Deep mutational scan, measured.
Amino acid sequence: SEEEEEEWRRAKERGEEIIILGILWKPNDEEAERRIKEALRRV
């Protein structure tokens, strides 16, 4: 969703871990980033 995407962007800017759509994303975690982008597209 729009607000999840916004939340994720803010976490990326701050360089902090975030759990979004049930996926743990850490800074520079390209695999998780790809999965999150896929999940955001499906929503």
Rank of each mutant, 00 (worst) to 15 (best):
Trp25Leu: 00
Leu24Asp: 01
Leu21Cys: 11
Ala32Asp: 01
Glu2Ser: 15
Arg42Tyr: 11
Val43Pro: 13
Ala32Trp: 02
Ile20Val: 10
Lys37Phe: 12
Ala39Tyr: 06
Arg34Leu: 11
Glu31Asn: 06
Glu17Ile: 11
Asn28Thr: 04
Lys37Glu: 15
Arg34Thr: 11
Ile36Met: 03
Pro27Ala: 03
Ile20Phe: 12
Glu38Phe: 02
Asp29Ala: 03
Asp29Glu: 02
Ile20Cys: 00
Glu31Trp: 06
Arg34His: 08
Glu30His: 12
Arg42Asn: 12
Arg35Gly: 05
Trp8Asp: 04
Arg35Tyr: 04
Glu4Pro: 15
Glu38Pro: 00
Ile18His: 02
Glu13Val: 08
Glu6Lys: 10
Arg42His: 13
Glu6Cys: 02
Glu6Asp: 11
Lys26His: 04
Leu24Pro: 06
Glu33Met: 05
Glu7Val: 13
Glu3Ile: 13
Glu6Ile: 09
Ile18Trp: 07
Glu31Tyr: 05
Asn28Trp: 11
Ser1His: 15
Leu21Val: 04
Ile19Met: 10
Pro27Thr: 01
Lys12Thr: 08
Arg9Pro: 02
Val43Trp: 13
Gly22Trp: 05
Leu24Arg: 08
Glu16Gly: 05
Val43Met: 14
Ile23Asn: 00
Glu6Pro: 03
Glu17Arg: 07
Gly15Ile: 04
Asp29Trp: 06
Glu7Trp: 15
Lys12Glu: 02
Gly22Asn: 04
Ile23Asp: 00
Arg34Asn: 12
Glu13Gln: 11
Arg14Trp: 07
Glu5Ala: 10
Ile36Gly: 01
Glu33Thr: 10
Leu40Asp: 01
Asp29Gln: 04
Glu7Thr: 10
Glu33Phe: 06
Ala32Asn: 02
Ile18Cys: 11
Trp8Gln: 02
Arg35Asp: 06
Lys26Ile: 12
Trp25Asp: 00
Leu40His: 03
Ile23Arg: 00
Glu2Pro: 12
Gly22Ser: 05
Glu33Ala: 05
Asp29Tyr: 03
Arg41His: 13
Glu38His: 03
Lys26Trp: 08
Gly15Val: 04
Glu6Thr: 08
Trp25Cys: 03
Ile18Glu: 02
Glu33Lys: 02
Ile19Trp: 15
Ile18Leu: 04
Gly15Pro: 01
Arg42Gln: 14
Glu3Gly: 13
Leu21Arg: 11
Ser1Val: 15
Ile23Met: 02
Ile18Arg: 04
Arg42Cys: 09
Gly22Pro: 00
Arg41Cys: 15
Asp29Leu: 02
Lys37Ala: 11
Trp8His: 02
Glu6Arg: 07
Glu16Met: 07
Glu31Gly: 05
Arg42Leu: 13
Ile19Arg: 08
Glu7Ala: 15
Glu4Asp: 14
Trp25Ser: 00
Asn28Ile: 01
Glu7Gln: 15
Glu16Arg: 04
Arg42Gly: 13
Glu16Phe: 11
Trp8Pro: 03
Asn28Ser: 07
Glu38Ser: 04
Arg34Phe: 10
Arg35Gln: 13
Ile36Thr: 02
Ile18Val: 11
Lys12Cys: 08
Ile36Asn: 00
Leu24Tyr: 10
Glu13Ile: 09
Glu2Trp: 15
Asn28Phe: 13
Glu16Tyr: 10
Arg41Ile: 09
Ser1Ala: 15
Ala11Ser: 07
Arg10His: 11
Glu3Leu: 13
Ile19His: 04
Glu17Gly: 06
Ala11His: 08
Gly22Val: 10
Ile36Trp: 03
Trp25Asn: 00
Trp8Val: 04
Leu40Val: 03
Arg10Thr: 08
Gly22Glu: 04
Glu30Met: 13
Arg14Thr: 08
Glu3Gln: 13
Glu2Tyr: 15
Glu33Ile: 05
Ala11Phe: 06
Lys12Tyr: 12
Glu38Asp: 09
Glu13Phe: 06
Ser1Ile: 14
Pro27Cys: 05
Arg41Ser: 10
Glu33Ser: 07
Pro27Gln: 03
Asp29Val: 02
Arg35Trp: 07
Lys12Ala: 08
Leu24Ile: 08
Glu30Tyr: 11
Glu17Ser: 12
Trp25Phe: 04
Glu30Ser: 09
Pro27Asn: 03
Trp25His: 01
Leu21Phe: 12
Gly15Arg: 05
Ala39Arg: 05
Lys12His: 12
Glu7Tyr: 11
Lys12Arg: 09
Ala32Arg: 02
Arg35Ile: 08
Asp29Pro: 03
Glu16His: 11
Ile18Gly: 01
Ile18Phe: 12
Glu31Ala: 07
Lys37Tyr: 12
Glu13Ala: 12
Glu31Val: 08
Arg14Leu: 10
Ile20Ser: 00
Leu21Asp: 01
Ser1Asp: 12
Glu31Arg: 04
Arg9Thr: 09
Lys37His: 10
Ile20Asp: 00
Glu17Met: 10
Ser1Phe: 15
Arg14Ile: 09
Glu17His: 11
Leu40Tyr: 02
Leu40Gly: 00
Pro27Phe: 04
Glu5Asn: 10
Ile19Leu: 12
Glu33Arg: 03
Ala11Met: 06
Arg35Glu: 08
Glu4Lys: 11
Glu16Trp: 13
Arg41Leu: 13
Glu17Leu: 09
Pro27Ile: 03
Glu6Val: 08
Glu3Asn: 14
Ile18Pro: 00
Val43Ile: 12
Leu40Gln: 02
Lys12Gln: 12
Ile18Ser: 03
Glu3Met: 13
Glu38Trp: 02
Gly15Asp: 03
Ala39Asn: 01
Arg41Ala: 13
Glu2Leu: 15
Ile20His: 01
Arg35Leu: 13
Ala11Trp: 07
Trp8Leu: 10
Gly15His: 05
Glu6Met: 11
Arg9His: 11
Trp8Lys: 02
Trp8Met: 05
Glu7Leu: 15
Lys37Val: 14
Glu38Gln: 06
Lys12Ser: 05
Ile36Pro: 00
Ile19Glu: 06
Glu7Asn: 15
Arg42Asp: 11
Ala32Ser: 09
Ala39Glu: 08
Pro27Val: 03
Gly15Leu: 06
Ile18Asp: 01
Leu40Lys: 01
Arg34Val: 09
Ser1Cys: 11
Arg14Asp: 05
Glu4Gln: 14
Val43Ser: 11
Glu13Met: 08
Leu24His: 12
Lys26Ala: 09
Arg42Met: 12
